[in-house]
Design a protein around this nucleic acid. Sequence first.
DNA 1: CGTTCGATGCACT
DNA 2: GTGCATCGAACGT
Length: 216
Amino acid sequence: MVAARKAVLPSSFYDRATLLVAQELLGSTLVHATPDGVAAGMVVEAEAYIGEDDPACHAAPGPTRRNHLLYGPPGVAYVYLNYGIHYLVNAVTEAEGKPAAVLIRALAPVRGVELMRARRAEAGRSVTGRALRANSAAVPDADLCRGPGNLTKALGITLAQNGTALSSNTLWIERGSAPAASVAWGPRVGIRVGVERPWRCWIDGHPSVSGGRRQL
DNA sequence: CGTTCGATGCACT
DNA sequence: GTGCATCGAACGT
């Protein structure tokens, strides 16, 4: 069974100003097809990381082995492991040679909810390493892909997808849109530098938006 | 309610 | 050796 691939965003979509790409990704659908099945979610929260001048961007130190994909052609997935625990997925934007990307921070589950639930429950241990509670049934659907680490786990995205074109047969994004009136912008969350740049956007009031932990 | 803090692996200095 | 674009359990009000 092959998933229907309708209106897949082409690489030219990403070859534009990163803030514009971030906003237009809201309402689109990220799809990951694996042998286990298809899981998909609508983007409801994203953050822009733009250039070596952005202290929070991975390109801030200049080109390295880790971040070189940011300098490459737009429309590919940049995945990396942070805190040794969570994978984060970005869409590389802007022309080749200009390092920038959009971090996908939260999705609203669209397809493969049971698969997402199974993936969230697996990997055994809780994050703290303590014994598992028998609570795995309690996660609401809206929370399955809430947060950048959670969504990669729910979709089964790992370093194996690093560098994959976002118009590939296994990983892609389908065009969609969010009502302009529902889009909100504010400071990025979860970072220690570059907090002053209001480069995070989300669908206001959507239950799957993470919003980060510490609001102020 | 609120805030703190441990787990965890890899890139980088 | 240090520091993260995180998460959620475990505390303290």
